[in-house]
Write a protein that binds this DNA or RNA. Structure first.
Lengths: 192, 192
DNA sequence: GTCTATATTTGGATAGAC
DNA sequence: GTCTATCCAAATATAGAC
């Protein structure tokens, strides 16, 4: 069994959530150590018991968020469906995962455009690449997709997710039909 | 004729360029007043003779950059071409405009993800909207495009520009054929 | 592990000479 | 209009009691 001092791990999680929430709401510059600690309901000094620096905290929060979104989305997928339809469904599942957690998305966007992203190393993006790679392989084997490079397909896949979500954060709620247009557009790019 | 004290306007421009360059290279957090002044080759205090605050300087730089890219791109367009082909060419012209000035693009991305973007008000995006609106109208009139909302079309148009340019900044050079795939994908989304 | 100070640095912005 | 010098506030990180 674990020890009774489980509060440590809980505090770590609270700090990551607090940081993500502040970045999503008010931007990276607003995520000061004081603000993060206050939002998490702990003292400022406590932060340094769990992370070596503020940057380390943000990087950890980013990796965890990415993993959650893409692991959950990947698990919900039926690999027996034909690649074209599967591509569209995958696209939509990921979109809806972000919609269900806008803060995670907004945090990710802001983090990715910061200088911290370079320090992160790109490990967080690996889950995406694996998912795109699987889809691509299946679609080429079935003769449905063009044999295009992974990174191009990945860009065409993620780009509308990002742009449509940005609009949602600014108050635009896309209808299901509009999301279908976007998913179909992605498919058109991949299709032979 | 203008007066002889033309150096004022020149200094203003140097400050905006310096700020954009630093943000593009090292991120928003690196664009301190000290760093901007040093990069521009002027004293820190001089900045406040030309802008009320650092934020005002960044907002001015952002607006000017957006205007330049989209005015130049729009001017290069032949409105007699049929909408589908015109859409693809417009997409490519804007892409190449950003490629020719990666710093402008990187600066724009980082600025747009900062809290400053809210203060900017969205004026910078109006040039894009007008261009998309013109294209959309022509394509619907000719029966080539679906009657979809402006903001959806605009998102589908800009999204791959953004994602492909991000890759280029990380060292990936897209071939002309690959750019054509992206432009054709956008067209597929718009097309009836 | 968490808290309450506190040390130290750096940031944005201003004052006043030239 | 520009520079040098400086003020003041805020931010990261640490020390030490509980």
């Amino acid at each position: 069994m674990t020890t009774l001092t489980t509060s440590g791990a809980a505090t770590r999680g609270k700090l990551m959530q607090a940081a993500a929430r502040i970045v999503a709401r008010d931007g990276l510059a607003a995520a000061t150590t004081a603000a993060i600690a206050a939002e998490a309901g702990v003292a400022e000094g406590t932060l340094y018991r769990h992370f070596e620096s503020k940057d380390d905290l943000l990087i950890a929060a980013y990796r965890q968020m990415k993993q959650e979104v893409f692991l959950n989305a990947g698990a919900a997928l039926d690999t027996t469906i034909a690649p074209p339809e599967r591509l569209k469904r995958t696209w939509k599942v990921i979109y809806l995962a972000y919609r269900a957690n806008r803060d995670a998305f907004a945090f990710g966007q802001r983090f990715a455009e910061s200088a911290l992203a370079e320090r992160e190393g790109g490990e967080a993006g690996r889950a995406v690449m694996r998912m795109v790679g699987d889809l691509r392989k299946a679609g080429i084997a079935s003769g449905d997709f063009k044999n295009l490079p992974m990174d191009l397909l990945s860009s065409l896949f993620m780009a509308p997710i990002s742009y449509l979500m940005k609009s949602e954060i600014n108050g635009r709620k896309w209808t299901d039909a509009e999301l279908d247009v976007a998913a179909t557009t992605v498919l058109a790019g991949w299709r032979k």
